[in-house]
């Protein structure tokens, strides 16, 4: 059991950062909050839904976004197609998708295959997706990985956008200082427990 006696409440419009050494359970924590993992002991309520009720979580998953440390893109599809294949974004049509790609600096790369795009470009596509459908819970795992200094501003900008829309953001990063100004709280994950950062 990697997480124990862990108690965390995140309110709406909060941006919370979680720090911790490698293997401390940061990714497990985000996967629990995303509902992809069910707690083996204790309880978790996400968006008012009991995470142990696996049928009920299906109904709230579309309100949660998780940006993992490996970009979630299908390699054979273009960057634009990687957005348009998702059922919750497809009704938007090509115009808003092109606009979102432009916002994250990928206007000219929309037709590039994902496996021929750099890690930084793949990361930007993930932020374009989030901007098209602002989630109620945004989970960022090593959010700054693969982003250059300019593009790293996208992380903070997107987090603020979700916050202003009433959503909650939890950021796991070794580079918390890069978005210090936006954070409501910083927590340290130590020995499976969360503690307020000193």
């Amino acid at each position: 059991m990697i997480l124990k006696d862990l108690d965390l409440v995140v309110e709406a419009s909060e941006i919370v950062a979680v720090r911790g050494p490698n293997g401390s359970g940061k990714t497990t924590l985000l996967r629990l909050i995303s509902t992809l993992l069910a707690p083996t002991r204790g309880s978790a309520h996400i968006l008012g839904v009991d995470a142990a009720d696996r049928q009920a979580v299906l109904g709230c998953r579309h309100r949660i976004a998780l940006v993992g440390h490996v970009p979630a893109l299908w390699p054979e599809l273009t960057l634009a197609e990687n957005i348009s294949v998702l059922p919750n974004l497809r009704p938007l049509g090509a115009g808003p998708i092109a606009e979102a790609l432009k916002t994250v600096g990928l206007a000219k790369a929309a037709d590039r295959r994902a496996d021929r795009a750099s890690l930084g470009m793949q990361r930007r596509v993930e932020f374009a997706r989030i901007r098209l459908n602002l989630p109620d819970v945004l989970l960022l795992d090593e959010a700054h990985a693969g982003l250059d200094a300019g593009a790293a501003a996208l992380v903070e900008d997107t987090a603020r956008l979700v916050q202003s829309n009433g959503g909650s953001v939890i950021v796991v990063s070794h580079e918390v200082a890069r978005m210090q100004g936006a954070l409501s709280r910083v927590l340290d994950l130590v020995d499976g427990r969360l503690e307020a950062a000193s």
Partner: peptide, 17 residues
């Protein structure tokens, strides 16, 4: 076999059962 694990997660979090 084509879906990487992170894409499976993405589909599930897009509301696909």
């Amino acid at each position: 076999a084509a879906d990487p694990p992170q894409c499976r997660d993405l589909l599930l979090l897009s509301g696909v059962e």
